[in-house]
Design a protein around this nucleic acid. Structure first.
Lengths: 135, 135
DNA sequence: TACTTAATCTATCGGATTAATAGATTAATT
DNA sequence: AATTAATCTATTAATCCGATAGATTAAGTA
């Protein structure tokens, strides 16, 4: 299941992307319009800024704005920043690989191949979707 | 990410399915062979029994055995019992549907359609996989 | 019958993670 | 100077996960 962080993050990104002028959008505006706890959203937007998706401007007329074209913002990268691994088990993760403690050998693991398949099909969707597709 | 419960459950099911004679397998045997906490596995097998996948026999020579052919044990149903919803958000879940509190309208939700797509592709895999494919 | 094996049931617990909150600070605009 | 709005640091509340403990019930075996 998707965390609220990810869900809110995606909603906020699309909200910001919908502004054609790309003028800064204040946190409060997004929070109110999308029914998100203002403070929680604050921390989410901060991570999106630190990851290079968003820029920010303080003071009056400030807020968050996109640093790239919506078309250039890939869903895989957003999901990885907000949610973490796309794979269902870390031993099949491309970007967050980790060996399973309990599993002596991945090649003989029954779960492994199934999860590879799921990962690939999900990745296939996220890789071919950008923020512009969510608008 | 998959819970350990699900991962262990899948491993245990394949372990049991590998016994061609389908004689009861004691919890302890599975736990030792698959490096799973015995007590934790106990509760997992209990839910698999209550869901109709496994039968059990007490006493000497007892243990858990499959109630159906591995070919008849569908991955979607196993996943739903062990992990819960296959969908990433409950508002796109077929079996565990729940309305999002924050979302006023699913039709205008940007996340919705993306998650529908992910659900369908994952479901497509699980629906066409059975326990026999894991062995 | 007594003993052993093994599942069953109830309950609890620590730790990690998630979601949310609070308050003080910094920066920009008017 | 006043206002607006992001930033930073810390804390809290709630939930969930993985694991554990102990007593009980059932079945086979000597």
């Amino acid at each position: 299941m998707l965390s609220k962080k990810t869900k809110y993050g995606l909603k906020a990104l699309t909200f910001i992307a919908r502004r054609i002028d790309n003028k800064p959008v204040p946190i409060a505006t997004i929070a109110k319009s999308e029914n998100i706890s203002r403070k929680f959203l604050e921390s989410i937007l901060l991570t999106l800024r630190k990851s290079g998706f968003l820029g920010s401007k303080k003071g009056k007329g400030g807020g968050y704005y996109l640093l790239k074209e919506p078309k250039e913002i890939n869903m895989s990268s957003v999901m990885r920043i907000l949610e973490g691994p796309i794979a269902l088990v870390s031993c099949v993760s491309l970007n967050f690989y980790e060996k399973c403690e309990d599993c002596p050998d991945e090649k003989t693991c029954a779960v492994y191949n199934l999860m590879i398949e799921v990962r690939d099909s999900t990745l296939n969707i996220f890789n071919n979707k950008s923020l512009s597709d969510l608008i």
